[in-house]
Simulated scan of single mutants.
Amino acid sequence: MNNHRILIHNRNQLMAKLMWFFLFLSILVNGIVDPAILVVIIPTGLFCCLVASVFVAKKWLVTQTPVIIVTVIFLFFITLVLFEPLLINFVYIWFALILSSIYQQYKPILLAGIYSLGFTIYIFYNYHAEVFPFTDQEDIVYLGLFSVFVTIFLIYASKFNEKLQEKLQQEKMQQKNCFGNLKNSRW
C-alpha cells in the first residue's frame, strides 16, 4: 500500500474502534436510562460495527471504506431516530457529520453533510410534532443552514490541513536533500 492508502486505512481502523466504543457506551448508558431502545441499538449497532470492521480487517476497498463507514454510521442514527423520534436522538445526526471529519477528506465529509441535511429535512417534516414541537415551519431553514455551515467548515478545515501536510512534506524533503548534499560533500 502507498502512504495515502496507509493513512486512509489507519483512519478506517480508528473509526471502526470508535464505532465499537460508542456502541458499547450507548448500550451501557441506555441499559440504565432507556432499556427499551436496546432492541434497536444492539442489532443495528452490531450490524453497522461489523460491516465497518470487516471492511477494515480485510482491507477491502480501502479508499472507498470511508464512504461505507459514514453511510453505516448514518444508518445507525437514522434508525435510532425513526424508532424513538426524540430531539436528543436527532442531535446524533450532526454528531455523525462531525465524526466524518476524522478522514480529513472532502468526499466523506460532503456525503455526511448531504445525509445530515437530507435527514434533517426528512425528520423535520415527518416527525415535527415529536422532535421539534416548539419550532415553526420556517425554522427548517436554520436547521438546514446549520448542516450546511458545519459541512463547509469541516471541508475547509480538511483542505487547510491537507495543504499544511503537503507543505510540511515538501519542507521535509528539502531538508533531507540539503542534509544529503552536505553529507556527500567533502571538506
Rank of each mutant, 00 (worst) to 15 (best):
K58M: 09
I8W: 00
I41T: 08
Y125F: 15
P85H: 03
Q137I: 14
I155A: 04
V29G: 03
M173F: 15
S53F: 07
V29A: 09
T63W: 01
K58R: 14
Y115A: 00
F149M: 14
L38F: 05
K163M: 11
A157E: 11
F21G: 15
L80V: 05
V67R: 03
L143F: 15
S100M: 02
M19Q: 12
Q105T: 04
W60D: 10
I114F: 04
V33N: 04
S158Q: 02
I41G: 10
F21D: 07
F124E: 02
S101K: 06
N3R: 10
K167I: 09
P85G: 00
A16R: 06
W20F: 09
K159H: 08
I73Q: 05
V51T: 07
L23M: 11
Y103A: 02
K59I: 07
F21Y: 10
V131P: 02
V56K: 01
Y156T: 12
L23D: 01
E166Y: 04
Y142K: 13
L14G: 06
Q170E: 13
V81G: 00
V33C: 01
L110E: 06
L28Q: 05
Q104R: 14
V141L: 12
N30A: 05
D34N: 14
S185D: 12
F149Q: 08
K172R: 11
I73W: 02
L18S: 05
Y127C: 09
S147R: 03
N10H: 09
P108G: 02
F153D: 04
S185C: 14
E130L: 08
Q64A: 07
L164H: 11
I152V: 14
M173N: 13
L87D: 09
Y115Q: 01
W20V: 11
W20A: 06
L111V: 10
I32T: 03
P35R: 03
I69V: 04
V54E: 11
V54S: 09
T120G: 03
V51H: 05
F90I: 04
I8N: 00
I88D: 09
L182W: 09
N184F: 06
F119R: 00
E84Y: 10
S116V: 05
G118S: 07
L154D: 07
L23F: 03
I109S: 00
L82K: 09
P133G: 13
Y92Q: 12
E138C: 11
R186W: 14
P85V: 03
L75D: 00
F83K: 10
N177H: 09
F74D: 01
L143S: 07
I32C: 01
P66V: 03
V29L: 07
P43Y: 09
I140N: 02
F119L: 13
E162Q: 12
W20Y: 07
H128C: 08
Q170R: 10
S185E: 11
L164W: 08
T135C: 13
I121F: 03
V40I: 15
S147H: 02
E162S: 14
K107Y: 13
Q64I: 08
S26D: 15
